[in-house]
Design a protein around this nucleic acid. Structure first.
Lengths: 345, 345
DNA sequence: TGTTAGCACTCTCAATCGAAGAGTGCTAAC
DNA sequence: GTTAGCACTCTTCGATTGAGAGTGCTAACA
């Protein structure tokens, strides 16, 4: 029997146990529950080694051991087994999609709720367009709302991006706006958002009398061209976190919650692993000082229609990684099927 | 000096003090801080009376007294003085509106953040249309997104209501959809959402070959006609609540947070006072068992464009009612100016 | 009649102390 | 290389205690 292998089997047992109990793990616990043919003294020696190697910390002399970030890293990369979703859990996720799809925005919200309730952690769903370069304008529509305001709708490859109230001169009739919309759409459809601006400026001459309207539209377009301009974000299940003892200190809980309320920070949290399809970031790897004892498991799905969805599950470092990854995987499949052509199955 | 008046002045002092400290108020505190020409013994007698009248509770024999719901009710209705907003606070609210207005959805989110940060409580902003009867369709647009999906946009008096992916047969070109949209808009614009359905069914005959598309649109319309179909809800500042000692018990905090995460419950919380323009609901009056020691101060604004905004501020029963009401009032003015015709000032 | 001082009484809160329990590290024996 | 045994450390929990805050009552006073 390889002794190094045994060492890591013990480490795995410690992490497994700690993930469930949140209590420092002692040598006797391991020898009773996981390695019955080894005595606690042997385990003790191994644990002492593991501590020296940086995989374990001891809160104080006579508590058990607690996994370090390094241990979780190793655990996720090599030791952990994926826990397949139970039938009821898989069903809970599917159920969110079996009704006919309604609002686009609903998808993210539903996904967030489904995952939160299955995993008992917090879920963040971020939807954004593929790089701004790829984003093409499809349709532009001005809709009269009150005597002197209209709503500018910008539709891109991936749905309505902007919906902004505009000033129009009271002289413009519903039909006038309709014509303008049609004309502009004809000229601009298929252009990238970045280009649209300059073209619109060129057209400016024809609309001398509607300068105010034009400059309003220009500004809206400018904003739409930035990636932040069309990033939707939904966060669900934040109250779940309070069920874990690591946040029974209200101050800690408050800090974390306030991160989850800050759009920019959540986006940062999700972006960290944006390169890869799947990513697990542990503790300090999350990038924010406030989440240095949280982990984020995230997955990115490229939908057929040009949108990119990133789903992140946020919980304490002693997260049930195996389960969470399975849940994300399952959700990914469900999302793909539902959104990029419902009939393709 | 009227003795009854004095009694209530003392009650006011107790509530005032308790709102700030969250600690049971003793007779000596009152005699020192609020009624210097009365001895603590006198106050004690009065407090004993007030307890008998149901305005005060005592947690135990030798703690001070704590206001009852009845006391808060009286306080809000008759005793309390509105606390005008400080200059910096007013500015904090204004600042959310002085930039050019961007996305419609942003308004609610910004308002929620502004109010949360000024009041240090939680803010919920609900936007919905006036009764479904009044809601008229303005524009309908099908935009091709992928080979066999299009996006159906429904625009009403008050902005885009629905944005739903639809199946279309691959034969339909961008231009075909454009024509269909135009045709449908011409026939349907100005109709109430409820009517649109039946008209659309009537038109059905002309679109024999597009049955799938038509039934999809019908379903979307059906959903849009219900009030829940177009109620936007934003909640901000939930982490603020954790700063109050009443939620230092994690279990309590969790319960409350989970209410604030449940769309339906928050809507219920805001609807309670929907009849009035301004409403203060205290403890059990909030209607939900989970919020029996919270208060909700809400205000409803009818915007020019047919939308109704309800903003509610949620906090512990010992809320700074005076300040909160002032903040809501101020926000109301700012909202009105910004949204219903920006130039009307 | 209303106000006040004084006092006994009650209850909480924080600090202290000690015993129990869990776990370690080390040593010596197998 | 493994294990039993043991001394040692550190936390946790319960009980005890004293201080402090606040009340209610009584009796005296204006």
């Amino acid at each position: 029997m390889d002794l190094v292998e045994r060492k890591f089997r013990i480490l795995q047992a410690i992490v497994d146990d700690y993930i469930v109990t949140a209590l420092p793990v002692g040598s006797r616990t391991i020898s009773r529950k996981y390695e019955q043919n080894l005595s606690s003294a042997t385990i003790r020696n191994e644990m002492s080694d593991l501590e020296e190697l940086g995989y374990l910390d001891s809160p104080h002399t006579s508590a058990g051991r607690v996994p370090s970030y390094k241990a979780y890293r190793l655990y996720v990369d090599r030791l952990m087994k994926r826990t397949p979703l139970g039938a009821e859990e898989a069903q809970a996720i599917s159920r969110f999609f079996d009704r006919r799809m309604r609002q686009m925005e609903d998808v993210a919200e539903r996904a967030a709720h489904a995952l939160s309730s299955v995993t008992h952690y917090t879920t963040a769903v971020m939807t954004r367009q593929t790089g701004e370069d790829d984003l093409k304008l499809r349709h532009l529509q001005l809709v009269k709302v009150t005597e002197n305001t209209a709503l500018l709708l910008l539709v891109t490859d991936a749905g309505v991006v902007k919906q902004t109230p505009m000033h129009v001169s009271p002289g413009m009739s519903t039909d006038d706006l309709y014509k303008v919309s049609r004309m502009l759409t004809e000229r601009l459809a298929g252009c990238r958002l970045g280009q649209v601006q300059s073209i619109l400026e060129g057209i400016g001459a024809e609309f001398r009398d509607q300068n105010e309207l034009l400059s309003g539209m220009l500004e809206t377009l400018r904003e739409s061209a930035t990636p932040e301009g069309h990033t939707d974000l939904v966060v669900g299940g934040t109250s779940n976190l309070l069920e874990y003892p690591e946040y029974s200190d209200v101050e800690k809980a408050r800090n974390l919650l306030s991160v989850l309320e800050t759009r920019e920070k959540v986006i940062r949290l999700l972006q960290g692993g944006a390169q890869m399809e799947f990513s697990v970031r542990i503790g300090p790897e999350t990038g924010l000082p406030e989440t240095k004892d949280c982990s984020v498991v995230s997955a990115t799905y490229r939908l057929g229609d040009g949108r990119v969805n990133t789903i992140g599950i946020i919980g304490p470092t002693r997260m049930q990684y195996g389960r969470v990854i399975s849940a994300l995987e399952y959700m990914g499949k469900a999302l793909m099927e539902t959104l990029s052509g419902q009939e393709q199955k």
